[in-house]
C-alpha cells in the first residue's frame, strides 16, 4: 500500500506525459478555423472581411449612385420638356402641336330657314381639359375662328370674352426647377 499523496503524485506524472495520437481531421479543422478567424480579423496588410465589406459598400454606393444620377438626369430632361411646352405663354410655340378642340358648337337659325353652324374654337383655360403636367401653368387662348358649314349668311360668331390671364406665380421649388432646367430654355429659343 502507498500513501494518498504518493498515489496522486503517480497520477500526476502519468497524466502530465500523456500524449495520445491526434487524428488528422483535427489539423484540417484547425487550419479552417484559423483561416476563417484570420479572414474576419482586422488587418490592413491582407485581404479580409473588412476589405470585402468595404468593397461591397463602395461598389454598391457606386452602382446606386449612378442609378440615382441617371434617374435625376431623366427627370431633368422631362422637366425641361415640360418647361419648353408649358411654362412659356408663347402660343406660336405649341399652337401647331396642340390641336385646339372644338369647345362649343353653335347653331343659329334665321326666320328664313337657313341655319348656320358656328364651330367656335375659342378655348379658354377653363374649357380646355388641362393635362396633368400643366398644373400651375397658364395657357393662353390658342385660336379663334369660325367655320361656316352652310353657305347661307354666315353669321359672325360673337367672340367669347377671353379670360384674363394671370401671371404665373412661381413657387421657390419651381424657381429652383427652372434654374435646373436652364438647358431646356435655350433649346426653346432656338426653335423659336
Amino acid at each position: 500500500m502507498m500513501s494518498e499523496e504518493k498515489f496522486y503524485q503517480n497520477i500526476r506524472e502519468q497524466m502530465f506525459s500523456y500524449a495520445p495520437e491526434v487524428p488528422e481531421r483535427v489539423y484540417t479543422g484547425m487550419r479552417r478555423k484559423y483561416a476563417v478567424g484570420k479572414f474576419f480579423q482586422w488587418n490592413l496588410s491582407t485581404f479580409n472581411a473588412w476589405y470585402l465589406s468595404a468593397l461591397v459598400l463602395i461598389s454598391g454606393a457606386t452602382v446606386f449612385g449612378w442609378g440615382a444620377q441617371e434617374v435625376t438626369a431623366d427627370r431633368g430632361l422631362n422637366n425641361g420638356f415640360e418647361l419648353m411646352e408649358f411654362s412659356t405663354s408663347t402660343a406660336s410655340v405649341y399652337a401647331p402641336a396642340l390641336q385646339a378642340p372644338a369647345c362649343k358648337e353653335q347653331k343659329v337659325c334665321s326666320n328664313e330657314g337657313t341655319c348656320t353652324t358656328n364651330i367656335k374654337k375659342t378655348c379658354t383655360a377653363k374649357d380646355t381639359p388641362t393635362p396633368a403636367i400643366m398644373e400651375n401653368v397658364i395657357t393662353t387662348p390658342l385660336s379663334e375662328e369660325s367655320i361656316q358649314v352652310t353657305n347661307v349668311e354666315a353669321e359672325e360668331a360673337v367672340p367669347q370674352p377671353i379670360e384674363e390671364v394671370q401671371a404665373p406665380i412661381e413657387t421657390p421649388i419651381q424657381k429652383k426647377k427652372a434654374k435646373d432646367r436652364k438647358l431646356a430654355v435655350p433649346v426653346l429659343k432656338d426653335n423659336k
Binding site: 497524466m15 500523456y18 481531421r25
Partner: peptide, 24 residues
C-alpha cells in the same frame, strides 16, 4: 499537438469535444 491533446482529453467529456478544444 499530442501533448496538448492529452490535456484537452482530461478536461473534455469525450474525444470529439477534446478535438474541438484542441483546434481552438
Amino acid at each position: 499537438a499530442s501533448l496538448l491533446f492529452g490535456v484537452c482529453l482530461r478536461y473534455a467529456k469525450n474525444k470529439m469535444e477534446a478535438e474541438d478544444v484542441l483546434q481552438e
